[in-house]
Simulated assay, not measured.
Amino acid sequence: MSFDRRQILTGAGALTLAGMFGARVAANPHAAGPFEVDLDTAQWRERLTPQEFRILREAGTERAFTSPLNEEKRRGVYRCAGCSNRVYTSATKFESGTGWPSFYEAVEGSVGYAEDKSLFMTRTEVHCGRCGGHLGHVFDDGPEPTGKRHCINGAALDFKHVPKPA
C-alpha cells in the first residue's frame, strides 16, 4: 500500500484536529478497544507524565538502560502506569541484557497483543488489557518455561514492593 503526499497531509491534519478537540483516539497505534479505562487525549495528558504519554498512548520507547526498574530486584508487582492494572510480577522478571525490564510471562489475562509493523519490521506489541496502553514487545528468545521475552518500557510501569511474609 502506498500513499501520495495529499493523503499523508490530510491524514496528519485529521489526527492533529482530533487531538486538539480532545477526541478519543486509539489507545496506541496498534491496540484496538474498547477498553475498560477509556479517556480522551486531554485526560490522558493530565494523568500521565510526558514520557508516559509518549510511550503508553503513542507507542514510543524509552532509551535502553535508562529505567530504574531495569535494575529492580525486590519482590513485588508491576502495574500499568496508566491505569494501575497488575501486568507483571517479580517472579517472572529476568535479566535479558537488553536494557529494558524483561519478563517471561505476564499476569494471566492482563495484557493483549497486536501486530506492529513499524520500523520496517513485524513485531508483536504488548499492551495493557485494561487501558490499551503500549507496554513494549514480546520476542521468542526468552528463558523457560515460556521461551518468551516481554521487553517492557520501565516508564510504562509502576512498581510496588511486596515484602516476603514473615
Rank of each mutant, 00 (worst) to 15 (best):
P101V: 06
G133M: 01
K93L: 09
G99D: 12
S118Y: 13
G97W: 04
K117G: 14
R86A: 13
T61L: 04
D38G: 03
S90E: 07
R75G: 00
E52P: 04
P101C: 06
A114M: 06
F139C: 08
G82S: 07
E72V: 06
G136K: 03
R45K: 15
Q51W: 00
Q43M: 12
Y113T: 14
M121Q: 12
T61W: 12
V126W: 01
W44Q: 02
M121T: 13
E52S: 09
Y78C: 04
E144V: 07
G97V: 01
C80I: 04
R79E: 05
K117W: 06
A114G: 08
T98S: 11
K117T: 15
C83H: 09
G142W: 01
G132R: 04
T92E: 11
R86S: 10
Y104N: 14
E108R: 15
R74W: 00
V77W: 02
L39P: 00
F53W: 05
A106K: 00
G76N: 11
R130C: 09
R130A: 13
D40K: 00
R63L: 10
C131M: 02
S118V: 12
A64V: 03
I55E: 04
P101D: 11
Y88I: 07
Y104A: 06
T124G: 10
K93I: 06
F120V: 09
R47V: 01
R57P: 14
